[in-house]
Simulated scan of single mutants.
Amino acid sequence: MENPQQKAKAYWKENLKYLLILLSVWFVVSFGAGILFKDFLNTFKIGGFGLGFWFAQQGAIYVFVLLIFVYVILMNKLDKKYGYNDK
């Protein structure tokens, strides 16, 4: 059986991996879609506005909220995996 320090270290390592992946997704959506790829994305329209503009104004926020829910689900699974859940 692992000692508590090894278990905690493995838990935080996996937690940081999730954070880096989710923040990278948000960065790509907000910076990439809203700034870098806006000219290409603006060729597509949503409600009369270019898709690049939409991502810069609203899409990044929606993706961020979605990523919060994904993070909660992942962390609940991680807590159960390492026995840190209170239930």
Rank of each mutant, 00 (worst) to 15 (best):
L19R: 13
V28F: 08
E2T: 13
L66T: 05
K77N: 13
W12Y: 14
F44T: 05
V29A: 14
L20Y: 13
W26D: 04
G59A: 00
F53M: 10
K45A: 02
F64Y: 06
F37H: 04
Q6H: 13
Q57H: 10
G50F: 10
I35G: 11
L41S: 04
N3P: 09
Y18I: 15
Y62A: 07
Y62I: 12
S24H: 01
G59M: 05
S30E: 07
N76P: 03
I35N: 02
K77P: 03
L16W: 15
L66W: 04
I35L: 13
F27L: 11
T43C: 02
A33H: 00
A56M: 05
F49M: 09
L74N: 09
V29L: 06
G34S: 06
Y84K: 00
D86F: 03
I61R: 05
F49L: 12
Y82D: 07
N76F: 03
K38M: 07
L36H: 12
A10L: 14
G52E: 06
K87N: 02
L78G: 06
A10S: 12
K9W: 10
K7F: 11
Q5K: 15
E2D: 07
W12P: 04
K9R: 08
N42F: 01
A56F: 04
I21C: 13
Q6A: 15
K17M: 15
G52M: 04
L78Q: 01
Q58S: 14
L78R: 03
T43M: 08
A10N: 11
Y82F: 12
G32P: 03
D86L: 12
D79M: 10
L78W: 03
Y82T: 04
W12K: 10
Y11I: 11
K77S: 02
G52S: 02
E14D: 07
I73M: 12
E2N: 04
E14V: 15
G47T: 03
Y62E: 06
G59V: 02
Y84V: 11
K80W: 00
Y62S: 04
M75K: 13
Q57S: 08
Y11H: 07
M1V: 14
A8M: 15
F53I: 08
L22A: 00
N85I: 02
I68F: 00
K13Y: 08
L19E: 10
W12F: 15
G34Q: 03
L23D: 13
L22C: 12
K80H: 10
I73N: 00
I68E: 03
V63S: 00
K80P: 09
G47C: 05
G50I: 02
K45C: 09
G48I: 09
G83T: 02
A56T: 00
K80Q: 12
G50Y: 08
F55Y: 10
K7V: 15
W54K: 10
F49E: 03
N42T: 01
I35D: 00
D79L: 00
L19D: 06
D79F: 13
I61A: 05
E2R: 08
V28H: 06
G48H: 05
F27E: 07
N42W: 04
A8I: 15
F27P: 02
Q6N: 11
D79Y: 07
E2Y: 12
L36K: 06
L74M: 11
I46R: 06
V28D: 05
